[in-house]
Computed example of a mutant assay.
Amino acid sequence: MLRLISCLFLLLGSSLFPATADVLADLSGEPSGAISFMSITPRGPTELMEGSGTATAIAGALHVPSGTTAPGPAMVIMHGSGGILPGREGAWAQRLNEMGVATFIVDSFTPRGFAATGDDQSRLPLAASVADAFAALNLLATHPKVDPKKIGIMGFSKGGQLALYTALEPFRRSVAKDDLRFALHIAFYSSCSIPYLASRTTQAPIVFLLGQEDDFTPAEHCRRYAAFFESHGSPVSFQIFPNAHHGFDLPTDLRYLPRAQTARKCGLDIELEPRLMARRWDDNSSIPPSGISSYLRTCMERGASYGGNAAALASAIESVRSSVTHHLLARN
């Protein structure tokens, strides 16, 4: 069975999804493998908070561990700006499956007609991927072998931002059905340079897994965001792995990406409530929504390092195992 799962994940790593898959509104029939489902494509956070945007069919890959009988835990897995990569999303899904956790790898890119956004993040609004994560949550909650109260989210880089932003109540209540919320948020090397803030969060546990040498999404920027979540009631685990760069969990050598677009020199809090407003870190001055793009043009840079670190990966595996065991696998 694991060989079949690995083959499917290899296909996912190559961004290959069946274009003719039926769009499913629920998982009551207990399907598995490649699944197409509906989301929306909002143009930004305001449309997302309104629950509006163009209806869009996206894709995912679902696997429920064999032998699962009673409803159990699950993890939504969100890729980064490079899309689904060989040796990352599928590898983490397999590790979680071996722990008894169902997994749903979401592909936000391929169904929308592109493979990556690493050199141009404007190709897809981040709000669209946030909507995708909640659409996956809504769908997973309909599966007879998934406990709706034990669904976590894990993401990498841009997907790490999604793992964090889905803990913000203004986004959750606009897209998630009823009182659905993620039970655990695990963010790998997330960008924290332009974070969204809200007056309320879901107060679910947050796990930051970061690289000390990350020059793409600096780990130190996430200390402020971790403090924000703690101040809003979320238990936070914050780990910075020594000698680790961006993508430290990948089976690749360290390399330099000259075209990678990075916000490492930015510092801007975007407050969602009571109205959308941004505030600079350096002088605490406010910027209206219309001025955010202009500010970003002054601080965005190109070029960053990227590659795996075996020691950091081993530590991350143990951290994920501990968090999942405590928050998803433990009996209430």
Rank of each mutant, 00 (worst) to 15 (best):
M1D: 13
L2M: 13
R3G: 07
L4G: 12
I5S: 15
S6K: 14
L11G: 10
L16E: 00
P18Q: 03
A19I: 05
T20N: 05
V23Y: 02
V23D: 02
L24G: 07
A25I: 00
S28E: 02
P42F: 00
P42C: 05
R43E: 00
R43I: 01
P45W: 01
E47M: 00
G51A: 01
G53H: 02
G53I: 03
T56D: 01
A57N: 03
G60D: 00
L62W: 07
P65L: 07
S66N: 12
P73S: 07
V76T: 03
I77D: 01
H79Y: 11
G80D: 05
S81P: 02
I84E: 15
P86L: 13
G87F: 09
R88I: 08
E89Y: 12
W92I: 08
Q94N: 10
E98F: 09
V101L: 06
V106D: 02
P111N: 02
Q121K: 12
Q121D: 05
S122H: 08
R123P: 06
L126V: 07
A128P: 07
S129W: 00
S129L: 13
V130Y: 09
A133C: 11
H143N: 06
V146P: 02
D147E: 10
G159K: 13
G160V: 11
L162M: 12
A163S: 14
Y165N: 11
L168E: 03
R172N: 06
R173Q: 10
A176V: 03
K177R: 14
L180D: 10
R181P: 01
S190A: 15
C192D: 07
I194K: 05
P195L: 07
L197K: 06
A198V: 00
S199I: 00
T201W: 08
T202A: 14
Q203C: 06
A204D: 08
L210D: 04
L210M: 12
G211S: 04
F216Q: 14
T217A: 15
P218Q: 08
E220P: 01
E220H: 14
H221C: 01
R223K: 14
R223P: 01
R224T: 11
F228A: 04
E230T: 12
H232I: 09
G233E: 04
G233M: 08
S234I: 06
S234Q: 03
Q239A: 07
Q239Y: 15
F248R: 05
D249L: 07
D249E: 12
D249P: 04
D253Q: 15
Y256P: 02
L257F: 12
R259L: 15
L276V: 03
R280M: 08
D282T: 12
D283N: 15
N284P: 00
I287Y: 01
S290F: 02
I292T: 04
S294V: 14
Y295D: 03
M300K: 09
S305F: 11
Y306D: 12
N309K: 07
S319W: 11
V320Q: 02
L329T: 02
A330W: 04
R331F: 09
N332K: 15
